Computed example of a mutant assay.
Amino acid sequence: MDASAASALPAPPPVPIVLVYSQGRKAAGGGHELDTQWELARQIAELKGAQLAGNVDDACIASADRYLVPDDTLTVDEARKLGVASERDLYGGVVPYPFVATKLIAHELPPGARHAPHGWSREFSEQVRGLVLPGYAAFSRDDALDAAASLWPGGRVRIKRPYGIGGAGQALVETGEQLAAELDDIGDAALQAEGVVVERHLENIETLSVGRVTLDGLVASYHGVQRLTVNNHGHHVYGGSDLVVVRGDFDALARLDMADDVREAIARARAFDACVQKYYAGFYASRRNYDVGWGADANGTHYCGVLEQSWRLGGASGAEIGALRVLQADPNAHTVRASTWEIYGAHAEVPAGACLIYHGTDPQAGEITKFYTVDGSSET
Rank of each mutant, 00 (worst) to 15 (best):
A8Y: 04
L9C: 05
L9I: 14
P10Y: 13
I17T: 15
V18P: 12
L19V: 14
Y21P: 01
Q23K: 08
G24V: 06
R25V: 11
H32F: 10
T36D: 10
I44M: 07
Q51V: 12
A53K: 11
N55H: 15
C60K: 06
I61G: 04
A62N: 03
A64R: 12
D65W: 00
D65V: 02
P70N: 04
E78L: 05
G83K: 00
L90R: 05
G92I: 13
P96C: 06
Y97W: 09
P98N: 03
F99E: 00
K103M: 01
K103D: 01
A106T: 12
H107M: 02
R122F: 05
E123N: 12
A148F: 08
A149W: 11
L151N: 02
P153C: 02
Y163R: 02
I165P: 00
A168I: 00
G169C: 01
Q178M: 14
L183M: 07
D185K: 11
I186Q: 03
L191K: 01
L191A: 02
V197N: 05
E199S: 09
L202F: 06
I205C: 08
T207G: 03
L208Q: 12
R212Y: 00
V213P: 00
L218W: 04
V219D: 07
A220T: 01
V225T: 14
V230T: 14
G234P: 05
Y238F: 15
G239K: 03
S241T: 14
V245I: 06
D249M: 07
D251M: 07
A252G: 05
L256W: 01
V262S: 06
V262F: 03
E264A: 14
A265T: 05
I266P: 06
R268G: 05
A271E: 15
A271L: 14
C275Q: 15
Y279G: 08
A281P: 12
F283K: 04
R288N: 05
Y290Q: 12
G293T: 14
W294N: 10
D297C: 09
E308W: 03
S310A: 11
G314S: 15
A316T: 10
A316N: 09
S317G: 01
A323Y: 13
R325L: 05
V326L: 13
V326F: 13
D330Y: 04
P331G: 13
A333G: 13
H334V: 03
V336C: 09
A338Q: 09
S339H: 11
Y344S: 11
A348G: 13
Y358Q: 01
Q364S: 12
E367F: 00
G376D: 06
S378P: 03
E379V: 06
E379Y: 06
